[in-house]
Amino acid sequence: MLRFNVAVHARPRSLHLGPIVAVQGLRLQTLSVSPMVLGEPMGASFEAAQSYLNKLPRMYFEPDGSFVWVGETGDVAPWQVDGVAYDRNGRLHSVEMRGQCPERNFDTLLSGFGWPGTDLIFQLADEALFVDEGEFRRFVTIV
Rank of each mutant, 00 (worst) to 15 (best):
L2K: 00
S51E: 13
V21C: 04
S34N: 14
S111G: 14
L17F: 11
F61E: 10
R88W: 11
F106R: 08
S94M: 11
L120P: 13
I20F: 08
G90D: 08
V81T: 12
L2Q: 01
G134R: 00
R11I: 02
P102H: 03
R88I: 06
L26C: 04
V76A: 04
P35Q: 08
F106N: 08
M36N: 07
K55L: 08
E135D: 11
H93C: 09
D119Q: 13
F113D: 02
T118L: 07
D107C: 04
M59S: 14
R137Q: 04
S51W: 05
L28Y: 06
D75W: 02
E135P: 03
R58L: 10
P35G: 04
L56Y: 07
M1W: 03
E62R: 15
M97A: 15
K55P: 01
A44L: 09
D126M: 02
E62Q: 15
F4Y: 12
G90A: 03
L124P: 10
R91S: 14
L53E: 08
G39T: 14
V81L: 12
V21L: 10
H16W: 08
Q24D: 14
L38Y: 04
T118E: 11
I142P: 00
T108S: 12
R27S: 12
P19W: 04
P19Q: 07
I20A: 06
R58T: 03
S111K: 13
Q50Y: 13
E135N: 06
A128P: 01
L15W: 10
F136E: 01
V143F: 01
V131W: 05
D126A: 04
R138K: 15
E47K: 13
R98C: 08
E135T: 10
L2D: 00
F122V: 02
Q123I: 00
C101M: 15
Q100V: 01
G43W: 11
R137I: 01
V8F: 03
D107Y: 09
G90K: 07
Q50V: 08
T30E: 14
L120D: 06
